[in-house]
């Protein structure tokens, strides 16, 4: 048991996520440095920026996936619910609280049903009725139920790209996450599906905190309460989404990116 109050800064206790002086390296190459930010509970926090600006590495630090990558090292502090995750002993229990959706859809080569039932099973839910209920609820919320309810036994990895992406979201929801992290989820999805998922996210916000890494500036504008701008391995600035898009920025680069002058 980690004592939440132990050497946690006062503001960490009130935030869902608090990042202090985060630096990420792959070998000797710095991928991201000098990140300081906080994420409130039940907000959608947008992260925008061009490719290779360190956005995905940032997400990996929050659920401690850096532990699975021998080449990756991090310094600085990441507080989640007031607890420093860099000292978290059982990383699996940490990751079970955080749902992740990837840029490219990953339907596991299991049945559609088992794709969604896997996470509950891993955390010890084994009753068929409970699982049935979770599978249906999560697939419905991910706007996929109607399309797959008659073929829950087919392989999840053989669904279409858009369906697989919604399956990935259903799988993340099946963890009943406290924090949901989406990494450029719309890259491999058609615009209609993207809009449907965006509606789902607006609903989900009532129950969980969402970090939305996106390559689409307008997507951040539509969804995010606050937005951070990452560029070349640095966090340039963060602020209220409406302020940023109203041009109230501290750095010219931010405005240039938002207005599409580079990307």
């Amino acid at each position: 048991m980690v004592n939440p109050s132990q050497d946690a800064p006062a503001q960490a206790k009130n935030k869902k996520v608090l990042i202090e002086n985060l630096e990420i390296k792959y070998g000797d190459t710095v991928a991201l440095t000098d990140v300081n930010l906080d994420i409130e509970a039940n907000e959608i926090y947008g992260i925008i920026g061009p490719a290779n600006s360190g956005k995905t590495s940032f997400l990996n630090c929050i659920n401690r996936m850096d532990d699975m990558r021998p080449n990756m090292s991090t310094t600085g502090r990441v507080w989640f619910n007031g607890i420093d995750v860099t000292n978290w002993r059982n990383l699996y229990s940490l990751r079970r609280q955080i749902g992740v959706v990837f840029p490219l859809p990953v339907g596991l080569p299991l049945t559609v049903y088992n794709n969604v039932a896997l996470a509950p099973q891993l955390s010890g839910i084994n009753k068929k009725a409970d699982l049935d209920e979770i599978v249906e609820r999560c697939l419905r919320r991910a706007a996929l139920w109607d399309e797959v309810k008659d073929r829950l036994d087919s392989l999840g990895s053989l669904l279409s790209g858009g369906q697989q992406q919604r399956l990935t979201i259903a799988r993340a929801l099946s963890q009943e996450p406290d924090l949901l992290m989406l990494d450029e989820f719309s890259i491999a999805v058609d615009p209609v599906t993207t809009m449907r998922i965006e509606d789902v996210l607006k609903e989900l916000k009532k129950e969980m905190t969402i970090i939305l890494v996106t390559n689409l500036v307008q997507q951040a504008q539509r969804l995010a309460d606050r937005t951070a701008f990452f560029l070349n391995g640095r966090m340039v600035e963060m602020g209220k989404t409406e302020d940023l898009f109203a041009g109230k920025v501290q750095h010219q680069e931010t405005l240039d990116y938002i207005e599409g002058r580079f990307g």
Partner: peptide, 19 residues
């Protein structure tokens, strides 16, 4: 990618291998 997906869900290495 399948392993990554499982690890991100909080599966241990062994659970990922077995399932």
């Amino acid at each position: 990618a399948f392993r990554e997906a499982c690890w991100n869900m909080g599966a241990t290495r062994w659970q990922t291998i077995r399932r």
